[in-house]
């Protein structure tokens, strides 16, 4: 009898897990409320647009059990994160996500898109966490960047948020971006072809050079009297030092990083 009860319980648990949102319920998690996941502090979206985004986020959360946050700010500062202004949108996004308590389950799965409208230093960054950190490849991140950045540069801020949510959904459905992969493959293929051409030319040119070894001698190294080299005077005059620097990231950022809370994040972004 105990065995039957046990089997029934396991079957029930399995069914619940297979239902939409069931996994969260099965592990005692609630879908987070969507109200505080669209934070337009820079006031670049209309109220109707914000409502539209909330609906989309709620649908994503229920269907795919991932947390999505959209945040716009005037500058990379938030009182909740301490008395500091961030220079990196990536660090700001990571900390805002981690300290805001966002994310599904123990892995705190989810994404946050931060758009900073600081004059002269407009940046955006989307950060991935938990399961999303694992599932977004570098080509996926590059693809999202390639889709979002032109919209932000063209001041189509609601379009950028809308496209971001579409891409999150697309990624949840297929696990990767088909179009993005195709584009990346094309680019990789061009590089590969270019490199193959270069190698083929280098190898065959070397083979051709071996066919023409006749050249005038320009050195008499073999005829130097052994031990006769004498360096009578050697002088180094220090003239000065120049230091140049270049940003570690300019238009694009990407790759994995660790937030101040210690959680791992992925994602990418740039300036617009």
């Amino acid at each position: 009898m105990k065995k039957i009860k046990c089997m029934a319980s396991l079957l029930l648990l399995l069914l619940v897990m297979l239902m939409p949102g069931g996994r969260a319920l099965a592990f005692g998690m609630q879908a987070p409320a969507a109200a505080d996941r669209v934070l337009d502090k820079a006031d670049i979206w209309s109220e109707s647009e914000e409502a539209e985004f909330r609906d989309s986020i709620e649908a994503l959360s229920e269907t795919y059990h991932t947390d999505v946050v959209l945040l716009t700010v005037y500058m990379l500062y938030d009182a909740a994160l301490g008395d500091q202004t961030y220079s990196s949108a990536a660090d700001f996004a990571d900390d805002f996500y981690d300290r805001g308590g966002y994310g599904y389950g123990n892995g705190r799965t989810g994404l946050i898109l931060v758009i900073s409208m600081e004059p002269g230093n407009r940046q955006y960054h989307f950060s991935t966490s938990g399961r999303e950190y694992e599932s977004y490849s570098s080509s996926d991140i590059s693809f999202v960047q390639g889709e979002i950045q032109p919209l932000l540069t063209g001041a189509d801020y609601d379009g950028a948020a809308r496209r971001f949510l579409e891409l999150v959904k697309l990624h949840e459905e297929s696990g990767h971006f088909d179009i993005g992969l195709a584009k990346t493959d094309d680019s990789d293929m061009l590089w590969s072809l270019g490199l193959a051409l270069l190698v083929a030319w280098a190898v065959t040119s070397n083979m051709k050079r071996r066919m023409n070894p006749v050249q005038k001698a320009s050195r008499a190294r073999n005829y130097a009297v052994p031990g006769s080299y004498e360096l009578r005077h050697y002088n180094e005059v220090f003239l000065g030092t120049s230091v140049s620097r270049r940003p570690r990231s300019q238009n694009r950022q990407g790759g994995g990083h660790i937030g101040h809370s210690g959680a791992g994040h992925g994602g990418g972004g740039g300036r617009f």
């Binding site: 130097a224 360096l231 005077h233 005059v237 220090f238 030092t241």
Partner: peptide, 13 residues
């Protein structure tokens, strides 16, 4: 950081 020097060698062989 690029440090510039003027180096002079004098010798024979």
């Amino acid at each position: 950081e690029t440090s510039h020097y003027l180096v002079t060698c004098d010798g024979g062989m």
